[in-house]
Design a protein around this nucleic acid. Structure first.
Lengths: 134, 134
DNA sequence: CTACATCTTCAAGTCGACTTTAGGTCAAGC
DNA sequence: GCTTGACCTAAAGTCGACTTGAAGATGTAG
């Protein structure tokens, strides 16, 4: 299938798909003339990449996670990434609860509300989901 | 307090603090000579900003959420952002479960595992936490 | 009073993740 | 056989979030 078909099915711009190809995140099955050809599986792979980046993984990280033929190291990596996500989820929940509270709180400024301030104590310093080896 | 003191207390680089000041995310209480002076409250504000960006909010979004003197519109905004986080949390949980499963799954490639593929169906198209008005 | 550590500004540089642009290729339909 | 539309590459541009660098000002210790 042609790249525009992939674009339609995945909802991603053609330019992005080409970019992911260049970066080695996806592979075409070959060329027809100079046109890249893809099979259906690339659509799932793209969905996975989109999900990954939506939760804060870099393209490089996604590349490592999506290597073909599950190697040992890969499974460990996946577990490690899952743990990172657990951490991240805690932060999100903290922030969400904080926001909901702030929205109904009577304190003049959110930063003057003790309940709101308490949530800040939970925060660690990491800015993104993953900074580990991969 | 001097900027380097703020840096020490917040764990952020001086350059970042100056940058946030330029961007209007924080305010100094004034200058002593040409040196910015800050009071303790800026440390909580910085913690809040860090938390926000760690969960995917842009600096501009954080700026809107942290305006002083809770205006009506602000509380609505906070609720809206909390809802966005709820969405985001669902995605994180989905991804985490998917990763954990993939790590123990027997399928040769994760993308061949039906359970793993199922999680992809949950995915929406949003890449970041917020693309709303603010 | 002078040295110097610490601040200042402003401009330019970096990085990831793309997008845009310019110029070129090719299969298909008229 | 020529036009057209979908594709191609390579290079440059963009955007957010900072960092770095150069050159200058200032508070404080000796």
């Amino acid at each position: 299938m042609d790249i525009s078909e992939v674009a339609k099915m995945s909802g991603l711009p053609v330019s992005t798909i080409r970019y992911y190809d260049e970066q080695g995140l996806i592979k075409s099955t070959g060329r027809s003339g100079l046109r890249r050809q893809f099979n259906n599986s690339v659509v799932e792979r793209l969905a996975m990449i989109s999900l990954g980046s939506s939760v804060g993984f870099s393209l490089l990280e996604m590349k490592h996670m999506l290597t073909e033929q599950g190697a040992e190291i890969n499974r460990e990596l996946l577990m490690a990434k899952a743990d990172e996500l657990d951490n991240q989820i805690k932060k999100l929940v903290t922030m969400r609860n904080g926001l909901r509270h702030a929205a109904i709180c009577a304190a003049p400024s959110h930063l003057e509300c003790p309940k709101f301030l308490r949530i800040l104590k939970v925060v660690s310093k990491r800015r993104t989901v993953g900074h580990s080896k991969y």
